[in-house]
């Protein structure tokens, strides 16, 4: 009884599946052509001596062993790790803080929300050039402001101890994107929960701690993962602001070394190996974040 029914269904299903596949085909073709193919080729080239213009020559794991012994590789990885370790939590705290503030009932809230979101619309390159002047050691706005409160600001751009913090500070400028997502998450928190908590005598902090943050946790996880991906791939700002990772490679990030290997040194195989290592690192961190979050992320209705 069930067999013929299935066959009958499968005829219809097959046609439906074909239609579905046809509809999805632009994406499938694009994915195969622009994602799978380049990724696989990059994996292949990472085992080759390849300068782009000459035919690749298979050299086994030499690129990988070379990277392990390359001080600049480790330096760029350490710089990137340092940047990510500070930029992600800072960005998160600022974005959540702003979202909480902008979720209160104040007149003209739409204006405030726009104002705080606006900075993240500024394109990267003009932004980087603008911040070069903010951080300028001699005439910079930041140091001028610091001087008014009696603090002698450092040479943000040319002191090896301050160049990375400068970039981390600057990254906060783009908190608007994450903020909007948090804001949407906040709007989603059921009012009943707050009311219930209030009836139980919970004050603002207790409500935030026990209602808002748990309800916001899926959004925090999402933004956290996007933050990891973004921070580990930081490129345009330091590339524009600190040519060659100056001063003394203190701002030489992973992607900059990768780019230089590929396009300046014509060592595409080496660069591909770096790309794959970064891919594995990001994949690992993302899986780790998902695993760690299992206990702490609360999905509504789950």
């Amino acid at each position: 009884m069930s067999q013929p029914a299935r066959r009958r269904l499968s005829a219809a299903a097959r046609s439906e599946r074909l239609t579905a596949l046809l509809f999805v085909s632009p994406w499938i073709v694009g994915f195969l052509l622009f994602e799978v193919y380049p990724l696989s080729m990059a994996a292949y080239y990472s085992f080759c001596d390849y300068s782009v213009l000459r035919a690749p020559v298979w050299i086994g794991a030499m690129n990988y062993t070379g990277l392990m012994a390359d001080d600049v590789f480790w330096k760029s990885l350490a710089n990137t790790g340092f940047y990510a370790a500070l930029a992600i939590p800072f960005g998160m705290v600022v974005a959540i803080g702003l979202a909480l503030l902008l979720n209160t009932k104040v007149r003209g809230m739409a204006v405030y929300r726009t104002v705080f979101f606006l900075p993240s619309l500024v394109p990267t390159i003009p932004l980087a050039v603008l911040w070069l002047w903010v951080f300028n050691g001699e005439h910079g706005v930041l140091n001028t402001v610091l001087a008014t409160v009696g603090v002698k600001g450092p040479n943000w751009l040319s002191d090896v101890n301050w160049s990375k913090p400068a970039l981390i500070l600057m990254a906060l400028w783009g908190a608007g994107n994450a903020m909007v997502i948090y804001l949407a998450g906040l709007q989603d928190v059921p009012q009943e929960m707050y009311e219930a908590a209030e009836l139980d005598g919970a004050r603002w902090w207790a409500r935030t701690r026990h209602v808002t943050l748990p309800m916001l946790s899926p959004v925090i996880l999402f933004n956290g993962i996007m933050g990891i991906i973004g921070a580990l791939q930081v490129f345009a700002e330091p590339y524009v602001m600190f040519p060659g990772g100056a001063p003394a490679r203190s701002t030489y990030f992973y992607t900059m070394y990768l780019f230089d290997n590929a396009f300046l040194y014509h060592k595409m195989g080496y660069a591909c190996a770096m790309g794959w290592i970064m891919f594995v690192i990001i994949l690992g961190l993302t899986l780790l974040a998902l695993r760690l979050s299992e206990k702490h992320v609360h999905y509504q209705g789950a």
């Binding site: 300028n136 050691g137 001699e138 005439h139 040479n155 751009l157 040319s158 002191d159 001063p247």
Partner: peptide
């Protein structure tokens, strides 16, 4: 070193 850097950054 710092003074030269600060001067140059201006």
């Amino acid at each position: 070193a710092d003074d030269l850097q600060t001067f140059r950054s201006g």
